[in-house]
Nucleic acid binder design. Structure first.
Length: 573
RNA sequence: CGGGUAGUAGCGCAGGGGCUAGCGCACUUGGUUCGGGACCAAGGGGUCGGUGGUUCAAAUCCACUCUGCCCGACCA
């Protein structure tokens, strides 16, 4: 490709709003162009990188025996009503009516569609297992897109769906994906870790996420450096310490101006672990069958030395969503904010108590009276509720497996795998007949990789102060050929030779100064740079550099340039 | 959806009731340069996000609205 013809241009300055390096360079180098919030065009350079990533993904999926298909973006609402997700998914899924006033939606994932295909095709155990995948556009109307391609509304996702006759088969294909995903990221050059995760709206039990650890990440990952335990903080467990004592009767004490645990600790002269911390949320509960929804106040109680993990609280409350309660909503339930507790709260309030509180005695809790707390409150005596683990794991907490201190870091989710089980097959009547003629639900799994997000992470990982430096496996071109000599016939000939040899070459044929060409080459970050200038041309040579190591300049004979470049490509691939 | 912030040329920005709306980069033409973002000269490009209002006069003041970005809520 000739730079003079390339459908993009480089920018000297970063467009306003490009807050992280990778995103800034993707824009400045002309890989992508933003159309609206969370909606981007892929320009030729970006599209080529995406194609390279896609073919790596296809290679690995095909190796698993997965068959590529393409499912529709537009789905009938009725299909999604079968699983209840037409109603339970919030405005993140866009819905509309067709001309006949039928409910339609833009599929943000394809479990429903895949299950529908499954039930049409699978009749007998003899057909199982089956595995399909697609690379397809997803529209998810995220309330807060950010950081360029990291979090967008429209994106390409590789999603695969497995159909098995039993759990054993599911576990096998799940493990196959688990390993294949690591190979995919390795081939692309992205360091990732797999962590145990929440299954969220997908349902199902076992799930893993692939995380690229980076400060720009939005997820918090808990890892144990000693034994290797890893989990998303949303589900991460940890060992809690207990301090058993004999339960006493509760007692009202005056505690003016103590709205926080910190204040209480100061005024009463007790450790934070002797207090109960309450978080007030409003949960939305949706009936999957009818779509009717109602809200309830959800009170989470955790011991004062810990924090509440809202995702765990939402799961324990079985709510579709949670948001912080307004002051009026708290008051309505008979609770005084700042001095609040479930003691004396109105019927119908959902109380979720962390096991740390359930197993501790004589905690200080709000008295639901301005300026007063109770000391010596006890779960089961003074109030009741559902006991669950709703505490948030944090740095230096103890590993649930080995007890050593945990680490907390930020990460970007670049892939996920779910064991769905029979959640979809039962809801959608996707059954097969087994060897004995018994009718059984197909066991399913689903597996996703965000292609554009993967590119965005690679650009975060591979850049320097001058621009991108993507690995050759995912770079848009293998070679950037800069000609600085006047003899255009010579550079044209070299360009044709490289192209003819099947080398992917970006040829800077523009009438620009050397500085401009070098700066643009650095920005675009093609791995191998050939410079043909007067310095070496007179000796029949050209200079070759790697973008990743600009200090080392190699000198290649023009005579056998093609074969030398081929060797170099092979060496760094 | 809440809080913040911004919208003036392709990009980055200045101007803040008054006369022809400016600067840098980018772009066009001519010339000189020619190995790390060259120089000189001459040019082209704007309904100042939109609508309504105040005023003799609005890019500038007011109201509403749209859009982008950041933080939160939310989310794979």
């Amino acid at each position: 490709m000739r730079m003079s013809r390339l459908f993009s241009k480089t920018l000297r300055e970063a467009p306003n709003g490009a807050d992280c390096k990778g995103y800034e360079y993707l824009l400045r180098a002309g890989y992508i162009d933003q159309l609206a919030t969370g909606i981007f065009s892929l320009l030729p350079l970006g599209f080529r990188s995406i194609q390279k990533i896609s073919s790596i993904v296809r290679e690995e999926m095909n190796a698993l025996g997965a068959q590529e298909i393409l499912m529709p973006v537009v789905n009938p609402g009725d299909l999604w009503k079968e699983t209840g997700r037409f109603y339970s998914i919030d405005r993140e899924m866009s819905r509309f009516k067709d001309r006949n006033d039928r409910d339609m939606c833009l599929a943000m994932t394809h479990e429903e569609c895949a299950t529908d295909l499954g039930r049409n095709i699978i009749d007998s155990y003899k057909r199982l297992p089956l595995l399909v995948y697609q690379l397809q556009t997803k529209w998810r109307d995220d309330p807060r897109p950010r950081a360029g391609l990291i979090r967008v509304r429209e994106f390409t996702m590789k999603d695969s769906y497995s159909f098995d006759k039993d759990q054993e088969g599911l576990e096998k294909v799940y493990k196959a994906h688990y390993d294949a995903y690591f190979r995919i990221y390795k081939k692309c050059g992205l360091p990732v870790i797999a962590v145990g995760s929440d299954s969220g709206m997908m349902g199902g039990k076992v799930a893993h996420e692939y995380m690229y650890l980076s400060p720009i990440g939005e997820d918090t990952i808990i890892t144990c450096p000693s034994c290797g335990y890893t989990a998303n903080r949303q589900v991460a467990r940890f060992q809690k310490d207990y301090y058993p004592e004999e339960p006493k009767a509760k007692e009202l004490v005056e505690t003016p101006n103590t709205k926080t645990i910190e204040d209480l600790v100061k005024v009463l002269g007790i450790p934070a672990r002797k207090t109960a911390k309450a978080l007030f949320m409003v949960g939305t509960f949706i009936n999957d069958e009818t779509g009717e929804e109602h809200t309830k106040l959800v009170v989470g109680i955790v011991r004062g030395d810990m924090d509440i993990e809202e995702n765990k609280l939402q799961n324990a409350a079985k709510a579709n969503s949670l948001r912080p309660a307004h002051e009026e909503e708290i008051l309505e339930a008979g609770i005084i904010p700042g001095f609040g507790s479930p003691i004396g709260a109105r019927e119908g309030t959902i109380v979720i108590v962390d096991d740390s509180v359930a197993k501790s005695n004589n905690l200080v809790a709000g008295a639901n009276k301005e300026g007063f707390h109770y000391i010596n409150t006890n779960f089961g005596v003074d109030y009741n509720g559902t006991v669950a683990d709703i505490a948030s794991a944090a740095q230096d907490y103890r590993c649930p497996v080995c007890g050593k201190p945990l680490n907390s870091s930020k990460g970007v989710e670049v892939g996920n795998i779910f064991q769905l089980g029979t959640r979809y097959s039962e809801a959608m009547n996707c059954y097969y007949q087994d060897e004995n003629g018994a009718r059984k639900p197909v066991i399913m799994g689903s597996y996703g990789i965000g292609i554009g997000r993967l590119l965005a992470c690679l650009c975060e990982e591979y850049n320097d102060e001058r621009g991108l430096m993507l690995p050759i496996a995912v770079a848009p071109y293998q070679v950037h050929f800069i000609s600085l000599i006047k003899e255009t016939d010579v550079s044209e000939r070299i360009y044709s030779q490289l192209e003819a040899a099947g080398i992917e070459v970006l040829f800077d044929d523009r009438k620009e100064t050397a500085g401009v060409k070098f700066a643009d080459a650095d920005l675009i970050g093609v791995p191998i740079r050939i410079t043909l200038g007067n310095r070496s041309y007179k000796d029949g040579k050209c200079e070759v550099k790697l973008r990743s190591n600009e200090d080392e300049v190699m000198s290649f004979d023009l005579e056998n340039l093609v074969s030398e470049i081929k060797d170099l490509i092979a060496k760094i691939s």
